[in-house]
Design a protein around this nucleic acid. Structure first.
Length: 317
DNA sequence: GGCCAGGTTCGCT
DNA sequence: AGCGAACATGGC
């Protein structure tokens, strides 16, 4: 097996300031650096982009500052025509949310003594997004009820088993499997990859509906939050938690809030309820003060905790 | 070894 | 409508 000839191209992205690439890339990779299917090491983020079936590796690094941000993107792939370059730029801009202006959010945090220190210490942090609705949906289902660590292991296994791959500089990158492939794998194939029977049914079912054209999830980008939730929860295996999760991490909505999320309930309990876990209803009621920027508010809190900067959070007894 | 982890559905009262 | 069981795996 010989590797195909790999070409290179590069371009620049100028995000809307303030923009902190390091915080954003760290969040995308769960602060683990090497993260199974995407990497963030020595200031360089790398992942594979699936552009209508053509795999391209993108390497992204910051060459600017938070107030004057500039991202340098280097692509490597078998073909790099104009269409691929345009689409790759669009995807990177989306994943890193470089066109999002956080000024309205910061106007809110300026008036909020709880969030203000967090917003200042994490100034320029954007909430990174997944590249496709299908990937977000399957990832959400994989993450149901089990720890994030286990979910990532299962996801990596799925990608290595059923995803296309490209090797650049000795590193193999796996793309997320296409719906047709997971539909063909079927419930049994997914079970073989350590998923429960129930989850295998959910994933295979959605993959089949997509592959057959019965549903079109990419159209969700143009719908309202409520329409998204209604559409997604109509699918077997997708509840309110999963739908909210997609709003936050795939559809780039500013006001997602998965109030049923166990970690979120615990975290809000820690920072705002004297260490006592909030119920879903309590969390939802508390969150209203942050609307319409609940995605950002909660991601800043999670970011502070995951990056080990709890000192930025309000201290409670 | 047992318990839990960033839920959802299904089948009971 | 509301409640409990089942679910598969990895970490502690």
């Amino acid at each position: 097996m010989t590797e195909p000839i790999i070409h290179c191209a590069s371009f620049t992205i100028e995000p809307v300031p303030p923009y902190d690439f390091h915080l954003t890339a760290d969040y995308a990779t769960h602060f683990t650096g090497r993260y199974l299917w995407e990497f963030y090491e020595d200031g360089m983020y790398r992942c594979v982009l699936d552009i209508d079936g053509t795999l391209v590796v993108a390497a992204v690094r910051s060459e600017g500052t938070v107030n004057s941000p500039r991202l340098e993107v280097e692509l490597s792939g078998p073909t790099l025509g104009e269409t691929i370059l345009i689409e790759a730029r669009r995807k990177i801009e989306w994943i890193f949310q470089t066109n999002v202006d956080l000024a309205p959010f910061y106007r809110m945090t300026d008036a909020d003594p709880f969030l203000k220190p967090l917003a200042e210490s994490h100034r320029g942090f954007h909430v990174p997004q997944g590249p496709s609705v299908f990937e977000g949906l399957v990832s959400a289902i994989l993450g149901q009820q089990i720890s994030g660590q286990v979910a990532r292991t299962l996801r990596a296994l799925l990608m290595e088993s059923y995803g296309e791959s490209i090797t650049v500089d000795g590193v193999t990158y796996y793309a997320f499997p296409h719906p047709e492939v997971l539909a063909a794998a079927g419930v049994e194939g997914l079970r073989d990859k350590k998923n429960s029977g129930r989850k295998s049914e959910y994933i295979a079912g959605i993959a089949e509906k997509l592959a057959s054209g019965e549903i079109d999830l990419e159209g969700l980008y143009d719908k309202t939050d409520d329409e998204v939730i209604e559409t997604l929860t109509a699918l077997r295996g997708v509840g309110i938690w999963s739908a909210h999760w997609l709003l936050v991490r795939t559809l780039g909505r500013p006001d997602g809030f998965p109030h049923g999320d166990l970690a979120l309930q615990k975290t809000l309990g820690d920072v705002a309820n004297g260490g006592v876990r909030m119920t879903g209803e309590e969390a939802l009621e508390y969150s209203l003060r942050w609307s319409p920027f609940r995605t950002y508010a909660t991601s800043y809190i999670f970011g502070a905790i995951r990056s080990g900067r709890q000192s930025d959070l309000p201290q409670q007894d």
